[in-house]
Design a protein around this nucleic acid. Structure first.
Lengths: 221, 221
DNA sequence: TTTTACATTTTTGAATGCAAAAATTTGGAT
DNA sequence: ATCCAAATTTTTGCATTCAAAAATGTAAAA
């Protein structure tokens, strides 16, 4: 197994929440499960620590990173900046074919909304945002975006979605697609920011990070 | 020596250009120099690879990353986005004391400009930009900014500075300070973008990345 | 019963050893 | 002399080992 694959598999385990935020990472078990020795596992954990997904405590092992409300707010803020930039760049560079693909993803997402299928809706949602970032044609941006969104993904998908919020999010997406089709960079940037700001408010209001903190506090006590 | 210190020292060696872009990283020598064994060195190299400073070639070791013109353009673009965001946030959150510190750094930088001391000018310049980012009060943003600027630092400082360019850059900095003092987020964001766009144009025009590519081509031939 | 000092076990972090892959050198054929 | 193949050396990637640190358990004293 290649180094990048090891990193990827552990990242997936963390993002799936199989090792919940704040929990100790069982070195021995992971070694057995991935059928590798401690050396490559520890290399991967250090990489993931640099990415912010793992917290290393000298001489006391590693834990799945746990985000405070402040961390969450900060990451959403950065994400807003990155998506706003991506939106502007995308409008300058996107091809008609790419717009068509995003429009198709949008229609599919709306269908999932009508069906009330939240999981599939989220999947489509993510494809659209990632499509816009990809259309910016800037791999450095794509990489940072991936790393930031990975860290807040769980919070986004765990936060409860009310019918009102959901309907409003879909209407925002109509505006996003519209701005993209008009190649209105400033407009797209603006609506993307608002869209993410709203999502951030939902997530923070749900007190996701704090819930996790309490959870850990209970476990320690 | 702690893991983070190993990473930091190798990063410094790379940023200083002591191991030039594209050059092979001599594992054995670095081990002796840092007085560590291969295990912690390799852990550090993998972290630096994730940061984009090192290129890992499976079964053929690691090299100091070499940036193409496209890479450089992309990184500058992201840097523009991050600084623009930082500028807006800074204007919302910065204290009078912090503004005073940045104003002082600005005055000092202008003195170095008048003295024609480019090295000290760059140092002051960097302090101002980092001060604005820090004033945004967003550690996630600070981290990404540090990682992106690290990768383009050498190109910025190697690019020749004409008197005209220099004078113009200083005038831009007057506008930056002014916007910050007025806490004009939109204005600061705008001028920071323009400032970086100009710097990017200079760097790309100087053909820094291509020069390095040729340099490597010669070495290989 | 609770607390504290000590011994034991476990876990961490790093050096070493080993097998596989790549680079280099050597030797032979053209 | 040049080119190609095989042997040798070097380097890489990983498993293992070892010392130090932390966690755990135990027993004695308050």
């Amino acid at each position: 197994m290649l180094h990048e694959e090891v990193v990827g598999r552990i990242r997936a385990i963390l993002l799936d929440g199989e090792i919940p935020p704040g929990a100790r990472i069982p070195e021995r078990e992971l070694c057995e499960r991935l059928e590798i020795s401690r050396t490559p596992l520890r290399e991967a954990l250090k990489v993931l620590a640099a990415e912010g997904l793992v917290q290393l405590l000298p001489h006391r092992g590693s834990r799945a990173a746990k985000l405070t409300d402040k961390d969450m707010r900060d990451l959403f803020e950065v994400c807003q900046g990155l998506e706003a930039l991506a939106g502007e760049l995308a409008c300058e560079r996107i091809t008609d074919v790419e717009i068509g693909a995003i429009a198709a993803a949008h229609e599919e997402m709306v269908r999932h909304y009508r069906d009330g299928d939240l999981i599939q809706y989220y999947r489509g949602n993510r494809a659209i945002h990632e499509g816009i970032v990809a259309a910016a044609g800037n791999p450095a941006l794509t990489g940072l975006y991936a790393s930031v969104t990975a860290r807040i993904r769980r919070a986004r998908y765990v936060t409860p979605m009310t019918p009102q919020r959901w309907a409003f999010a879909v209407s925002e997406h109509e505006a996003i697609l519209n701005a993209l089709q008009r190649r209105d960079g400033a407009g797209l940037s603006h609506i993307l920011r608002a869209h993410l700001r709203h999502k951030r408010e939902e997530v923070l209001q749900a007190g996701f990070a704090e819930a996790e903190a309490n959870d850990l506090a209970l476990r320690i006590a």
